[in-house]
Design a protein around this nucleic acid. Structure first.
Lengths: 229, 229
DNA sequence: GCCACGATCCACCGAACGGTTGATGACCCT
DNA sequence: AGGGTCATCAACCGTTCGGTGGATCGTGGC
């Protein structure tokens, strides 16, 4: 149906993975890796999105933002450079943005939701078999959602039993909690009273379905609400 | 110097990564991927290590255990099948074991130490540039240690400021702690008194350099002493 | 305007936690 | 026999935490 091959932009900080995907797509008819980037920033530059300040232009070299890219394959959590989610958020704001298919190792709620909310067209895991991956890329290129089975299940679970979302302040306190800080220490850090910290904690425990701070940390980690490091 | 190419066994649960490594080594003269496995169990079978019970043999088909493999490239943390560390532990017990070079995403203390202690010849990270990787494979094939810079730094740090090791019981209690259990719950789980739990906790805090249970969990996670999931 | 929600604070109380000291038995190594 | 480590328990005490029931204030939506 389409005559020209799908032009793919790879964004992944692992040279090995980039190499593998490139080789994999090289074997597939109608798919071609035309660009690579080790992080979000480089990807945006390739897409012509780094020049946001140059508004109103349009007579530049590359025509438009898509810059000859039909689909972006994007890893999350890339060391050093721009985060995958931030990159997605920016890419979808480009004039005529290419669809972004996330390809990552992690399947935590936080990663999935952040990516989808940022505007990802699909979410695949790196342990997927090659043909599933190719199929997903083809779907994504046409703008259709492509989800790995595990990811789809997680989303369905979430819809079935919706978790109450933590407010911004609660997330902030949860983060400090996970650093091992006491209520008093948190209160001083945020310039609020200890009583307020306790109130927030009660709400956090409530929303997470736990009854003490250690359990709050571990369930938050499990659900990917917070992260170590 | 060596005339026949290095024969490599890849062990990784990600098809993409296997593909990438294969393509990468195909470009390198004197290196060749001759076998692949998605997990430790499959790797052992390829190496002829699944028949441990056949002791005293030696006149079988394949000569010895190495089965024509010069070096094993092994991921840790593979979904489903046998863990990478367990696989290494078994491989090095084979009659004439090939060197095992670990290639993984994670650089936590726990992973590195477990792998080295299990008998890994080297430890590289997946974000390493291809030529560094090839160099490491060559070194490993000759039985020489090959460490990624970050990994080497971590090990040196550890040697400079040796951490007191947690005892078995302390690790057990730390694990339960990280599940959000109270002292009383832990005591009931382990059939010991609450006083004993508290004593262990004091020792754990001491060794980790913290002063409360939440901080204990997070530093233990950071150092890779315990893991989420 | 009113209502919902989030963020802030207060007071009280019982339970849990953290720190200390001290003690016992088991085991291993020398 | 002695010294070291580990695991076990006890009593005590001050601090922190968790739970409850309030209260005020601002923002944003209907």
């Amino acid at each position: 149906m389409t005559e020209s091959p799908l032009r793919i932009l790879l964004v992944d900080d692992h040279p090995v993975v980039r190499h593998g995907l490139k080789a994999m797509f090289a074997e597939q008819p109608g798919m071609e890796v035309v660009a690579e980037a080790p992080d979000g920033r480089a990807a945006l530059e390739l897409l012509g999105g780094e020049e946001e300040s140059r508004s109103g232009g349009g007579g530049g070299g590359a025509d438009g933002a898509s810059a000859g890219i039909d689909v972006v394959l994007m890893d999350l959590r890339m060391g050093g450079g721009m985060d995958g989610v931030s990159a997605i958020r920016r890419i979808v704001r480009l004039p005529s943005p290419p669809p972004v298919l996330v390809l990552t190792t992690y399947d935590s709620d936080a990663d999935i939701l952040a990516a989808v909310e940022a505007g990802a067209t699909g979410y695949m895991l790196k342990d997927a078999p090659p043909d599933q991956l190719c199929e997903a890329v083809r779907s994504a290129a046409q703008g259709q959602t492509a989800l790995a089975p595990d990811v789809a299940n997680r989303l369905m679970d979430r819809l079935r039993s919706p978790r109450p979302a933590l407010s911004g302040r609660e997330l902030e306190i949860l983060g400090l909690l996970a650093r091992g800080m006491s209520n008093r220490a948190i209160s001083r850090e945020l310039f609020i009273s200890e009583a307020t910290v306790k109130t927030h904690l009660v709400h956090i425990f409530d929303k997470l379905g736990v009854d003490n701070r250690t359990a709050a940390i571990t369930t938050a980690l499990q659900r990917g609400i917070i992260r170590v490091e």
